[in-house]
Amino acid sequence: MTNLEPGDKAIPFELPGVDDRSHTLTDYADREALAVVFTCNHCPYARAWEDRLVQTQADYADRSVQLVAISSNDAERYPDDGFPKMKERAQEKGFNFPYLYDESQEIARAYGAERTPEIFLFDKGGTLRYHGAVDDSYEDPASVKNAYFRDALDAVLAGQEPSTSETAPVGCTIKWR
């Protein structure tokens, strides 16, 4: 069960990225919208949706939207989710957003994230405006009927409440230690 409800404030983080830099929540405080996306390398749901996340970042970059992906999985049991593999994945897929490693799993626990992928979308004031899935079809982008995340982004950028502020995230469970 997530620890954040729409209307709650973003929880600070400081995590290493695949670019070997440290990233904090405040680095993105000036953005009109910030999407914290819990994801990982190995999960097929995360992989099915990752091109759509890359495209979303590209489409909204000039509107001051920032995606930040965080992987929190136990890399001992799931070696594909280790930091070196995250670097490879980001390179291979051309991630145009930071990909951060939450090795201690503290940030995932603080947010109450449960699945990969799982989106927490905040407005410029750091208030949660949308939480949940990317859209309603992991299997086929052409079958999407409800683009929850993009719709929420449009609403946030227009200074409005998203018509859907919460959906059930669909994906693999986060692999806890």
């Binding site: 999960c43 097929p44 099915a48 992991y138 299997e139 086929d140 693999c172 692999k175």
Partner: peptide, 20 residues
């Protein structure tokens, strides 16, 4: 041969990755 309680990725005919 990594056996685990995990979800599985399938590469579809058109190259996309799918959970089924």
């Amino acid at each position: 041969s990594h056996y685990a309680l995990a979800c599985r990725a399938y590469q579809l005919e058109d190259g996309r990755i799918s959970p089924l």
